[in-house]
Amino acid sequence: MNAGMIEILDNALDILKVLLQGEEVSKNKNVLLYDKYRYNSAVEEMLVHIANRLELRIYTGSDKLFVCPEAGSRLFGWTNEELRDRISYVTTNSELFTCYFIIMTLVTMFYREAYPDTPVAYVKINDLIESVARRLENLLRIPELEKVSQENQFDFTEICKVWQRLPDAREGVSGGKNDKVAFVENVCRFLYNEKLIALDMIQRIIYPTERFKVIIWNYYEDRDNRRDLLSFVRELEVNV
């Protein structure tokens, strides 16, 4: 390998290392690295190449670099067990899947489909709770739900049950750290720690971060990513 190539490789690895350490690479922080990415297309290509081989994706937006794992990445993706440890007060898989349900509900409140920017500026926490409750109520009305549920170990009936069991602080029944409102707030805090949303607990609003927007627009718009992602989802359905 010639010296020029080694230098490009070193630069790309330096950027990836800093990103994986959770630090920012932008025009404000780690500026030298950012400039190497921005103004040297060889470094950019190398970084994207290495990241792809490691099941990662690199995106840029608002003069900042973002890294994310591809769906189902064994190397950098989270397992259910790890996520149970990460989200406060979640101990069972049923509770964890309820968190997934809430996260997906929030994503669809911001985006019906992938777009460069979210048409919704912010979502109120109370609206999120209402939306989750409404969806689950509708789900419970499906007549053969119980029958289908018997065939699966985990399904959406479990999520409905978890939700029903949670005391409803909206009706003045507080369950301390474990009522419907607190449960949704916990999920929001997890998303906040993942730098996906900004939270204003005074106004009780959820705001999507630049990271959130950039990944939605870039990752989900890529045809290959979309194909891989959906095949994952389908495979899991078939392999029950």
């Binding site: 994986l20 959770g22 794992p69 950098f76 739900l145």
Partner: peptide, 23 residues
């Protein structure tokens, strides 16, 4: 996914790319 009442674990794959890589 919801209407077919399949495995909710599949939901994770829909939003996983949004998360930070787990090192």
């Amino acid at each position: 996914l919801v209407s077919q009442n399949e495995r909710p674990a599949a939901l994770k794959f829909l939003f996983e790319p949004l998360m930070n890589p787990y090192v």
